[in-house]
């Protein structure tokens, strides 16, 4: 057993695992907080919706598409000055969170937009006919109706963040991905690679299970 995992320092692994969880938690929190309103705005300003604004929608959509088309590794590097400005460092957990948020927010926003589109137009019409304001329609009808879809989108986003977080190891982001690259890849310590990948796999499984349970809990159809 010890021969098999000769290179493994379990306290390093533990620290890296904790870092990954911190990166995931921090970036997921901000991604949800920023992506949800952005998704709502995308939906509302799109064609034939409550606040249809072709110019605003076109602009938002363009920015979202640009951010989504930049490979995450490149985004990590391009963002370094901005990251230093925001987080004070481009290294470690704090340095990883800004690029993770910028990379995942447009992704999540699109998923929110799609989930809102799935809500029957009749629901909006009925709520409008009751004399609701646009804010009431969004907060009290659209978001509750789209909740299962938004939760499913949040789950996909969380899992995407796990793999993005692993990538941030490239620029010294810390966490399991960092360990996998520095020890598993660069020092040919295959055992470290296997353990970190296994841990990431378990993390993804747990996230998906929680997400699925939440979706089922909030589905009333």
């Amino acid at each position: 057993m010890n021969a098999l995992f000769a290179n493994i320092d379990w306290s390093d692994i533990g620290q890296a695992g904790l870092d990954t969880l911190l990166m995931l938690g921090g970036s997921l929190l901000f991604t949800l907080l920023l992506g949800l309103p952005l998704g709502v705005l995308l939906f509302l300003t799109s064609k034939r919706q409550l606040l249809a604004q072709p110019v605003v929608y076109g602009l938002l959509s363009f920015v979202v598409n640009i951010l989504r088309s930049v490979p995450f590794v490149i985004l990590l590097i391009v963002m370094i000055p901005f990251t230093v400005f925001i987080a004070g460092t481009s290294l470690g957990v704090a340095g990883a969170i800004p690029p993770l948020v910028v990379g995942a927010t447009p992704f999540f926003a699109r998923l929110v937009e799609t989930a809102l589109r799935e809500v029957d137009r009749g629901i909006i019409e009925a709520t409008q006919a009751m004399g609701a304001t646009t804010t009431q329609i969004v907060l009290r009808a659209l978001l509750p109706e789209a909740l299962p879809g938004i939760l499913a989108g949040g789950t996909v986003t969380a899992i995407t963040l796990v793999s993005y977080a692993a990538m941030s190891g490239v620029i010294g982001g810390g966490g399991l991905g960092d360990l996998a690259i520095r020890f598993g890849y660069q020092r040919f310590q295959t055992d470290v690679m296997v353990v970190t990948v296994l841990l990431l796999l378990i993390l993804v499984q747990i996230l998906q299970t929680i997400g699925d349970k939440l979706v089922i809990h909030f589905s009333r159809r």
Binding site: D120, G122, I123, E125, G131, L147
Partner: peptide
């Protein structure tokens, strides 16, 4: 004024348009 007016008019629909989450 329009919102107040709408509150004085009820409407029902072919596909009911009930909120499935409530």
């Amino acid at each position: 004024g329009l919102r107040a007016q709408r509150q004085r008019i009820g409407m029902i629909f072919q596909h009911f348009n009930l909120l499935s989450s409530k």
